[in-house]
């Protein structure tokens, strides 16, 4: 295992029932301090893979090797926004505080220090003013920021986000991705981001895992995302246009 790897999947199979893996034979490394994108169509098992990395479910077979001890590795998880029930009248601050619960521990209440960290996370995500607002009354982009702030409040080594730009308008999407890029560049935080749209994240992630029909393609974004590779992977004529250092993926002639 290379020293600069943080997490490595070895012949990994993930899924919910033994005989029915949603994804198998995965051999990929997540680089430390990397910005890692996992891209694949709906239902291909991206969320299942994340749940396995997080230890919510066990691998069906194969292994996940953590470069540092799993116990010392703190994951900040930003789940798919639509798994969260809008019925609860919780404020943004209350929700972000949940990120502290593991560090606070059972039987204890949040202390001053925890409130300070929550405030910092809010301002990091540019939602300092929304602290007292109800989560359910926020816009999609603001909700996403609140969930990212909660993950940050847990002071994670790795930030794991499931479809953070799903169902978002273009400005909110770009704002969230820019925010993540900032964390990655300024704080050297390892980020794992899941998306089903390659075009949306290709200019942000540094390394990538593409999933299509049980096949995988992974490595550095610049070496993996090429016209030949995508054409082969998707079985479609794919063109990549570069404009001001940005990649634009176009299908067809």
């Amino acid at each position: 295992m290379k020293k600069e790897d943080l997490i490595k999947f070895k012949d990994l199979s993930v899924g919910h029932t033994k005989n029915n893996p949603v994804m198998s034979g995965l051999n990929v490394s997540v680089p430390a301090h990397g910005f890692f994108g996992i891209i694949g169509p709906n239902g291909c098992g991206k969320t299942t893979l994340l749940r396995t990395i997080l230890g919510i479910i066990r691998p069906l077979s194969g292994r996940i090797i953590y470069y540092s001890d799993r116990r010392n590795l703190h994951f900040g998880y930003v789940p798919q926004k639509d798994t969260i029930d809008p019925l609860f009248p919780l404020t943004v601050t209350e929700i972000v505080m949940m990120g502290r619960y593991k560090r606070i521990g059972l039987f204890r209440k949040p202390k001053k220090e925890d409130y300070r960290i929550v405030q910092d996370s809010l301002s990091h995500c540019g939602i300092k003013r929304l602290g007292d607002r109800l989560y359910r009354e926020l816009s999609g982009g603001q909700k996403q920021r609140a969930l990212i702030a909660r993950a940050l409040a847990s002071q994670p080594d790795v930030l794991i986000l499931d479809e953070p730009t799903h169902n978002m308008d273009l400005p909110s999407e770009q704002a969230v991705l820019n925010l993540l890029r900032d964390f990655h560049q300024k704080e050297m935080m390892t980020i794992i981001l899941v998306s089903h749209l390659i075009g949306a994240v290709v200019n942000f992630v540094k390394s990538i895992l593409l999933i299509e029909d049980g096949r995988f393609l992974s490595g550095d974004t610049n070496t993996v995302v090429t016209e030949e590779n995508l054409t082969r992977l998707y079985g479609l004529k794919v063109k990549i246009q570069e404009f001001q250092d940005q990649k634009f993926i176009v299908v067809g002639e």
Binding site: G55, P79, T83, I84, M98, K102
Partner: peptide, 12 residues
């Protein structure tokens, strides 16, 4: 109750 997935990810 609010977010079981994240709570489990935190080891609860």
């Amino acid at each position: 109750a609010f977010d079981e997935e994240t709570a489990r990810a935190q080891g609860l």
